[in-house]
Amino acid sequence: MNSFTDAALPATDSTATTKEAPDLDAQLAKFTGTVGNVRVDNAKMSMTGVDVHYGDAQAIHNVDLDLGKNEVMAMIGPSGCGKSTFLRCLNRMNDTIESCKVAGSLTLDGEDIYERNQDVVLLRARVGIVFQKPNPFPKSIYDNVAYGPRIHGLAASKSELDDIVEQSLKRASLWSEVADRLDNPGTGLSGGQQQRLCIARTIAVSPEVILMDEPCSALDPIATAKIEELIDELGKNYTIAIVTHSMQQAARVSDRTAYFHLGRLVEVGVTNDIFTNPTHQLTENYITGRFG
């Protein structure tokens, strides 16, 4: 395991503990730079030389990566490899952790998101995030979805807001299940429904990029299947970055896959290639289950 631990990012990979932990130094020695093409032609977000520190511990080492427009990017890797940390840098959610320091260049449509005059509120309206654990507000289903449009003033009238709520719930394929009980508390839904509600809440703001931090790790297979369908569907209109522990999931939903290990970006490539024909030995070891 890595030397740093981050309470905000709980380790959920059960396979990690059962395998014999290989020597870290030996693994690091195998890393000589990212394999594969990190750049794409129509980049929505572009990261260059990203370093992240938690206090004295470095969590991310010099990562370069592009997120293409309307692309689904899966980030995989063993627990504590920094993929969630990297994801949270993309809409500056790491700002809430005081000891966290981000360096390097991260741009959204060419604008540096860590620049001094970059407005965090605006950034997060453009880059939405769905968390690992479903976290609906303890309010009604309607208010959950309507919250974002309300604070940003996206709807001029009540009927317009109703429209946004309905559209968002439909796109999150939750509408048919909750249409007749929009006033019920969002916390009363099942886990899978709650997570879809959170996704509906995120897309209600019409962000350009959606970040998903292991959105299915707390869900059963049926709910997971629904969310995966949803990601497939959303990928047509949104740029999506998803962190996942399930390689099958990464294979199913993503266009490209990035493999992180010990805070380094080891390999990036078209999903099919990564899973069928990994170039780097570390990637191969992970995908074939030699360590987790």
Binding site: M93, G128, N135, F137, R201
Partner: peptide, 27 residues
Amino acid sequence: VPPSIADAALGLGASRMQAVMHHVLPL
């Protein structure tokens, strides 16, 4: 109050004060 609630609000683009006033304080 679970930090996930404030995180959810912040992630939607609520300002820190909105997250506190709308979600943390009522809870």
